[in-house]
Design a protein around this nucleic acid. Structure first.
Length: 511
RNA sequence: GCCGGGGUAGCUCAGUUGGUUAGAGCGUCUGACUGUGGAUCAGAAGGCCGAGGGUUCGAGUCCCUCCUCCGGUACCA
């Protein structure tokens, strides 16, 4: 009955993952490629802690002592609220604020690492996931924003995603604010003067929340379509599950403004700017926003980044919190079929924008900044789908078997020789017989096995088995096992002195 | 967070109106084959039937609560 004692149940937190060696090395290769692009543009690495004081992350609810839901937090031994970072931008702002006097501006850094959010996990959505950011802090120049778009495009292409299979979409929050001004000025009871509305304006809290609400609706265009947005801006909308989502309650003429705005599409960046002008030119921020887009367009064009890579898109919103100017996202445009044959899109894998106010929270003065963040995990699954990242099965392609355990000393010499020649090699340290050792080699993705029994030793040779060839050939063996064993077509002998070349020969077949 | 649908062996699933000891395929392991991966054959292991409570003489099956996975929706830095 001692078996019945309560054992600890092995369980894992929801939304968290265990990653196999294969996935980890694929991710590392991907990160290395991304890093090479960031460094090509002169960004240098930075590392910050996983934990931050909650207020540095900007996550206190108004009037509340409790951290915002949505982040992992706890009180430390001094009763201070501490939380796991939920992105890499807030820690960067904190770092810049702490080191502003020593940092050469513009400060350009990249950072990769896990971030944590308490969200509902779904397919491709986790509570712990990797982001890989680059940012330029301390310049308000649109050159930095244009460059961010270029880097995003170049990164995706470096990862093997073809031009046309992705697109970088750019918008400007100032343009959106220009539109919002018009919408809010017309809203019921809002006394409105020039430039007064929208986030950052002097309008009341009610207007600010309404503005946010409108942005939220716009953000859902992808999902619900134009008619859906219209409903959401107005009375509300019933989705297919029957749930009713209350709307923003705008009157029809205000909704019209938003819909007109969303209807503006143009292939060419310059054309879109021209089409937007009549809608927002009455607004100061709106004009500013368009001017910024003009500068970005100029920089992109001069850099050779045309509309086949970077487009302007007035429907891009990118979250709600802290963006103050240009916003951009990189999306994969091709469709895939999932396991059930349903078409699916990877969608946005890269996102960013300008956040001129983030450092201000610490210093009181404005340090403009812009940057972007790549969703490492989602992009990795896209690359795996495209087979742009090889999941190499084994870190070491060669297994030195131990046919005769009494020869272990000799086997150790063989592996050492292989390693000295720069070939990753594993010595079988298990206890099972040779058949199991081959199985082990096969299952751990080895390419070649070295066999040296007393026969080979006497002849001064080693046998080298090509596992993949053997795998192929074994399909045709049928039931004549004896013959198969005698011939061993996938195996060859080499003088011991020539083992390295022989192994290289086998590995070369699959390089 | 809210609405809906699931959870039975490692995986995919079956399990009668509530009724003896819960099954299959695949996979795993062992052996035939102690110097060779596959195939074949023989055998074995593997289940708190998601968890807890309730109804009942009796629950994998019915009821409640929780956990968890899937779909939708909300939120998303």
């Amino acid at each position: 009955m001692s078996d019945k004692i309560r054992r600890t149940e092995a369980r894992r937190l929801r939304g968290f993952r265990d990653l196999s060696g294969e996935v980890v090395s694929a991710r590392e290769r991907m990160i290395a490629r991304i890093r090479s692009v960031y460094e090509r543009y002169g960004f240098a690495p930075l590392e910050t802690p996983a934990l931050e004081y909650v207020e540095c992350l900007g996550k206190f609810l108004p009037e509340s002592d409790q951290p915002d839901a949505g982040i992992f937090s706890f009180r430390d031994e001094d009763e201070a609220w501490v939380a796991l970072r939920y992105d890499l931008t807030a820690p960067l702002s904190r770092y810049v604020a702490m080191n502003i006097n020593e940092l050469p501006l513009p400060f350009r850094r990249y950072q990769v690492g896990p971030v944590w959010r308490v969200e509902k996990p779904g397919p491709g959505r986790f509570r712990e996931f990797y982001q890989f950011d680059f940012d330029s802090v301390g310049t308000g120049s649109m050159l930095a924003d244009a460059e961010a778009c270029m880097i995003m495009a170049e990164t995706l292409e470096t990862l093997g995603i073809r031009r046309g299979d992705y697109v970088i979409r750019v918008n400007n929050r100032k343009v959106l604010n220009g539109v919002l001004e018009r919408v809010l000025c017309g809203s019921a009871g809002a006394a409105c003067s020039e430039g007064a509305a929208g986030p950052g304006g002097t309008a009341g809290a009610a207007d600010a929340s309404l503005a946010l609400n409108v942005l939220r609706c716009i953000d859902k265009l992808d999902k619900v379509g134009l008619p859906g947005v219209e409903q959401l801006l107005g009375k509300g909308r019933k989705d297919e599950s029957g749930a009713f989502i209350p709307g923003a309650g705008l009157p029809p003429e205000q909704i019209r403004i938003v819909l007109d705005y969303l209807g503006i599409r143009a292939t060419f960046r310059a054309a879109l700017i021209g089409d937007l002008a009549p809608l927002v030119e009455a607004s100061e921020v709106g004009r500013q926003g368009l001017d910024e887009l003009r500068q970005i367009d100029a920089a992109l064009s001069a850099g050779g980044f045309d509309e086949d890579r970077v487009v302007f898109d007035s429907t891009v919103v990118r979250g709600l919190e802290y963006y103050t100017g240009p916003v951009f996202e990189g999306a994969l445009t091709f469709e895939i079929k999932d396991e059930d044959g349903q078409p699916r899109q990877f969608g946005s894998v890269f996102g960013g924008g300008r956040y001129d106010d983030l450092v201000k929270r610490f210093l009181g003065r404005e340090i403009p900044a812009t940057g972007a963040s790549i969703g490492v995990d989602r992009l990795l699954s896209a690359l795996q789908y495209l087979r742009k990242i090889e999941s190499s099965a084994s870190v070491a392609p060669v297994l030195v078997t131990r046919l005769d355990k009494s020869l272990t000393g000799e086997y150790q010499k063989l592996v050492a020789e292989l390693r000295a020649a720069g070939i990753n090699a594993e010595l079988y340290v298990g206890t099972q017989n040779i058949g199991k050792q081959f199985q082990y080699a096969s299952r751990t993705g080895k390419i070649a096995c070295i066999v040296m029994g007393s026969d080979e030793l006497a002849r001064g040779e080693v046998s080298i088995k090509d596992l993949r060839l053997g795998d192929e050939l074994s399909k045709e063996v049928g039931e004549d096992r004896k013959k198969w064993l005698e011939q061993q077509p996938a195996q060859a002998s080499a003088p011991r002195g020539q083992m390295i070349e022989a192994v290289r020969g086998v590995l070369g077949r699959y390089a």
